[in-house]
Design a protein around this nucleic acid. Structure first.
Ligand SMILES: [Zn+2]
Ligand SMILES: [Zn+2]
Ligand SMILES: [Zn+2]
Ligand SMILES: [Zn+2]
Lengths: 139, 139
DNA sequence: GATTAACATGATAAAGTATATCATTTCATT
DNA sequence: AATGAAATGATATACTTTATCATGTTAATC
């Protein structure tokens, strides 16, 4: 994701938009809440408003540049939409997020939808638990 | 679910608790938000406070009497925990909720967890879309 | 490069969902 | 019925997100 993509979305290339896209592209943990992004940017010495972060993320989502997920814990998290579709395992101790994709599950969803005369537009599969043998020291 | 279950949970049998349990037991749509419950009870002429509804639902959840789900749309919804585990399809037009259970998906989740050294404590699978050939007249 | 109109930002207000507080009421035991 | 413990409900507060709007920025045009 780069400036090209912002323009392609019909949005002006502004500092806040570029900064947010850069952060999502380069951050180690790439599932970030709006507030995470806001604080990380402030920590980097950038000037940005929280309202702008929320607004831009919503615009990016509408443009298909980012995906929004509702993990438990109040705040939605965002990630770049560069990767293929995947679902998530979330560690309840450390907050660590691992992505996975399983063709069998995806196909069964379609099959179940068909059985119920349902057309799937989107879905959310989140496994909550913990990684075995992992401490929560860096939670 | 009945008064017996409230007592079993170590809670006093009070009017608000009984009313909420009755509503969840007898309501046509049994996935209700705290505010749904509050307004339905008020509509029935019952006197109850919104804070009590939230408090009681949280207690019921902790006691395993109800399950909480985070469908999209801000408010969490609750349902009695009498049924076996199931997942949900949610119509984005009408709000209609259909429950399903698929052994293959459940087993694949376990398998994927094993592959990632993950112990599943809980999971959430929600399919969003629409039921084919259904209008949104009573959305 | 300057002009300019449209667009974007950010401080703040406001909305929406849920929890905390606490004086009063209800429950359940004696 | 008396009584202490627990629960209620009005309200305040917390928390996440969106709306408002004066000001600042972008990008197209000259
Ligand atoms: Zn999936
Ligand atoms: Zn992801
Ligand atoms: Zn399931
Ligand atoms: Zn259900």
């Amino acid at each position: 994701m780069e400036e090209r993509d912002i323009k392609r979305a019909g949005l002006k290339i502004t500092q806040p938009r570029v900064k947010i896209l850069d952060l999502l592209s380069n951050s180690q943990e790439h599932h970030l809440s709006a507030e995470d992004i806001y604080k990380l940017l402030l920590g980097n010495g950038e000037e940005i408003g929280l309202a702008t972060v929320y607004r831009v993320l919503t615009q990016f989502e509408a443009a298909g540049l980012v995906n929004r997920h509702h993990f438990e814990g109040g705040q939605a998290v965002f990630e770049l939409a560069t990767e293929e579709h995947h679902d998530h395992m979330v560690c309840m101790k450390t907050g660590r997020v691992v992505e996975f994709y399983d063709e069998i599950i995806e196909q069964r969803q379609q099959e179940l939808a068909r059985l119920h005369n349902f057309r799937i537009k989107d879905h959310s599969l989140i496994l909550y638990g913990e990684f075995i043998g992992e401490s929560d020291e860096n939670a």
